[in-house]
């Protein structure tokens, strides 16, 4: 559903490349990014699959949770033998949602008790990555 709002199918890969500044075809699927990613267990698509899906212009990628589980730790970025910055691709995917006001974290639904337990450094970072 959110697909229609965020980006058209024809434009999907091009838009992600534009936002990220990365060339997804530089990737030769060695899997190094997935091997080093600390959060793959939580992702419904592996980091390397995210790039593969982009190569194939598979817009269902927007429904994946990978971009929201990614913590921008950049373990993939420093290890990619082809210099593809996957963190930037993940950010571009998040931005496609966030720029249409499709927030992933709902500030209104957070209770004061929840916020009281969190340091502002976590809140600022989370809101920057997950609200638009």
């Amino acid at each position: 559903m959110s697909r229609k709002k965020t980006v058209s199918v024809e434009n999907f890969r091009a838009r992600v490349e534009e936002l990220s500044g990365e060339n997804v075809f530089a990737c030769y699927q060695c899997g190094m990014c997935a091997a080093g990613c600390p959060l793959t267990e939580e992702m419904d698509r592996l980091p390397s699959q995210v790039i593969r899906d982009l190569q194939l212009n598979d817009i269902t990628l927007l429904d994946s949770n990978a971009m929201w589980v990614c913590a921008s730790c950049l373990a993939c970025e420093v290890r990619c033998p082809k210099g593809v910055d996957l963190a930037k691709l993940m950010e571009a995917l998040r931005q496609l949602h966030l720029r249409k006001e499709l927030d992933h974290v709902s500030i209104d639904e957070m209770s004061q008790q929840e916020i009281a337990k969190l340091p502002q450094i976590a809140l600022v970072a989370s809101f920057r990555k997950k609200t638009g």
Binding site: P38, A71, L123
Partner: peptide, 20 residues
Amino acid sequence: AGECCGTYQVVDRRDLSIER
């Protein structure tokens, strides 16, 4: 030593940051 602690995921995915 250089692994991620789970960072800001603690806000909406606390399980994930606890595990890391």
